[in-house]
Design a protein around this nucleic acid. Structure first.
Lengths: 230, 230
DNA sequence: GGATGTGAAAGTGTTCACAGCC
DNA sequence: GGCTGTGAACACTTTCACATCC
């Protein structure tokens, strides 16, 4: 069994994908699955799945594969998803409001417990069942509710200030929707969500089709069935 | 100069970060920057920046660094960002509407030109200055406007069907907001946007603080200034 | 002098292939 | 027989360090 070897970050980033897939499979009534089948379902190799899991223990049965609900439970435990994590959102614009009222967090282990803004016209208004608070109240709320996760949903120009405020209040992990690089102390984790940056890398392949992929250049796309294997 | 060596995907994914940073620096009036300064600004090493750029040509001047606006223009050209890319969105729920009316696309090279849904009650309604169309009209619109990028903003259960439809219509790159794995033919690129998956990997480090990071466990976060160097 | 561009070295991550077990 | 768990081989990515050039 492979413990005590440092777990690569890339493995940790894949675990939620396994959770997503296993939850779907469980909902579909699948009881057991092999690394090969799970790999096809997700789009990774079987060896990768087995190797990834080996960092945390042994969860399968030789000759049979993995019991779906058991493996799901184990990975959730590894990721700390046996509880619901409270989060605060700063920025009550379009984006911040969408995030604060998003109903996809709860079923996957998260909950927005407070929304802040610095615009006096927004403070006091409701978004979902939360009341927008003044951003100066953030430290007190974060400490009172023991919140460790902060979501930055303000314009780029204000993002660093907000991040500083969060960190000083005790936030340990930041999900950053502002399209700018945040600087935080060692030990605080920041992850960017920037769909436009992703689009901008996709266009590289649209422009350079045929260079890196074995794609027939020119002409329109072929019609017909588009689902490969599986 | 380094051309004709295959460009690693990881390099392509970093280019938009450089674009973001250079655009900010340009707006701040910075004329010239070294790889060391740019690296600090973004949070990567100077060597990485120089190596990344070397896949595409020579853009700097020894002893001086890079001219900000020139480098910005070159990377935009490499990524195909000298034009505006039309996109279609499928799914006119909360998320789809937010995406369709997001004003952050235009300044960075993208534009939503059509929104689709299969709910007859939504079809005909307006979102921003677009009218929601029936999803059966997608192929015609995609071909007529020569759209290559599709955004999936439907529930997980319908995502694969939508992806198939897009691919058959000629879409070559998909931005997938549905929390499920999409299967597409060779040569079609899919990128997932799943903030919850990112949060789920962050919790791993919250639960295992001290294992992988040199972070003092226990106790609350320290107060005081939170911006390191720079 | 100072910073780029780049081969070579070091470090990470993925795949292979097979012993071991159910 | 079939599939896991894993050391070893391989592939990829980052960092180093320095010759080169403005």
């Amino acid at each position: 069994m492979g413990r005590d070897v440092e777990v690569p970050e890339t493995v940790v980033r894949r675990l939620p994908i396994y959770v997503r897939a296993l939850a779907q499979l469980e909902a579909e009534g699948v009881k057991t699955i092999s690394s090969l089948e799970l790999g096809r379902y997700i789009g990774v190799t079987a060896a990768q799945i087995r190797k990834d899991l080996s960092y945390f223990g042994e969860f399968g049965k030789q000759g049979r594969g993995y019991e779906v609900s058991h493996l799901l439970g184990e990975i959730k435990r590894i990721l700390g998803l046996t509880r619901v994590w409270p989060m605060v959102v700063v920025g009550a614009g379009r984006l911040g409001q969408a995030i604060a009222s998003y109903d996809g967090f709860k079923p996957r282990g998260f909950e927005v417990v407070a929304v802040f803004d610095n615009d006096p016209r927004k403070v006091g208004q409701r978004v979902g069942h939360l009341v927008i608070q003044d951003v100066t109240e953030l430290p007190e709320t974060v400490r009172a509710l023991n919140v460790k996760i902060g979501i930055v949903a303000v314009p780029a120009a204000e993002a660093q200030k907000v991040a500083n405020l969060m960190v000083d209040a005790g936030i340990r992990a930041v999900l950053n929707y502002a399209p700018t690089a945040l600087h935080v102390p060692e030990g605080i984790r920041v992850e960017d969500v920037d769909p436009v940056a992703i689009l901008q890398s996709l266009t590289y392949y649209l422009v350079n089709a045929g260079d890196s992929d074995p794609v027939r250049a020119g002409a329109a796309a072929p019609a017909g069935d588009s689902t490969p294997e599986l």
